[in-house]
Amino acid sequence: MQINLKGISIVVLGGDARSLAMMEDLTASGAVVNAAGMPADVIPAGVHYFSEPEACLAGAGAVILPVPGMSEKGYLHSPLAAQPLAFTEDLAARFPPGIPVFVGVAGPALAKIAANSGLRLIELMKMNEVAILNSIPTAEGAVQMAMEMLPITIHGSCAFVLGFGRTGATLARLLGSMGARTMVAARRPEYLARITELNLTPVPFADMPHYLDEADVIFNTVPVPVLTGEVLEKVHPGTLIIDLASAPGGVDFQRAESIGVKAVLAPGLPGKVAPKTAGRILAKVVIRLLHEEMAGN
């Protein structure tokens, strides 16, 4: 059943294609959606465009900032705009007090403004619900990259997934279903048991370097250095490494290049390969959270 947000005003500042998909779903839920920091000609039907962000904040019940937040130079992520929107403490002071302010991830600069201005930030990408759903387009995007960059098919290849968290689990299942001989490195015994149950090959992380020379493609999901220079010596030249972990990733990219191993850092795939799906995932969670907040008031 569609949740009804009639009566709530939501402001969207800046953003990318994901934000456009979010606006469509928020409007469909009955909310009044105001937008600034994007070109007027890309704003979906039913959304109210404002050239100045201050003008659309009065009476707002929630604000949505871009998924990547803002740069360290103080500009909101707005690749569709000719001139990105500056996010300052003066602008933050115009937010109605106590309202939820949604963002994907708040970097240090945004977190500082939020703390100084008393904003109630909600980081969506840190929520399990979002991360699990986002793992679907992430896995599909990673496989798409591998298919474009490998000289062989995924079917019949040897694929190695490092980590069995939310993204690793979804990716490993997908690779297995496509016919790849899939090995998965994990630390926790219950994860190794689940990998076995999925008919994939479990590899304790301590033993991971001994298996790397079999891999045609390695997908890393662990956000700490795991494919160090020493470990990369075990990787066969010509192997493709796709690092899905948050920057700076878990790969010694300089060492990989020097030994003929192609390694690419590919964070944030949902917004690149499936922005509409990624936006709708976020909209679904935001709508649910706002509905719960309205019900509690």
Rank of each mutant, 00 (worst) to 15 (best):
V222S: 04
V222T: 14
V222Q: 02
P223A: 11
P223V: 02
P223C: 10
P223D: 09
V224K: 13
V224F: 11
P225V: 08
P225M: 12
P225H: 08
V226E: 01
V226W: 04
V226F: 04
V226C: 08
L227I: 07
T228M: 10
T228R: 05
T228G: 10
G229P: 08
G229T: 10
E230R: 13
V231T: 14
V231I: 15
V231W: 00
L232F: 12
L232T: 06
L232Y: 08
L232V: 11
E233G: 14
E233A: 15
E233L: 14
E233D: 15
E233V: 14
K234D: 11
K234A: 15
K234Y: 12
K234L: 00
V235H: 06
V235C: 09
V235Q: 01
V235G: 03
H236R: 15
H236T: 15
H236S: 15
P237E: 12
P237K: 13
P237C: 14
P237T: 13
G238Y: 12
G238C: 13
G238A: 13
G238F: 12
T239I: 13
T239V: 15
T239S: 12
L240W: 09
L240N: 00
I241S: 04
I241H: 00
I241A: 00
I242N: 07
I242E: 03
I242W: 03
D243A: 05
D243E: 01
D243T: 03
D243R: 05
L244C: 10
L244A: 00
A245M: 06
A245G: 08
A245P: 05
S246K: 07
S246D: 10
S246F: 09
A247S: 13
P248G: 01
P248Y: 02
P248S: 03
P248D: 03
G249S: 08
G249N: 03
V251N: 04
D252G: 11
D252R: 05
D252Y: 07
D252P: 09
F253Q: 09
F253G: 11
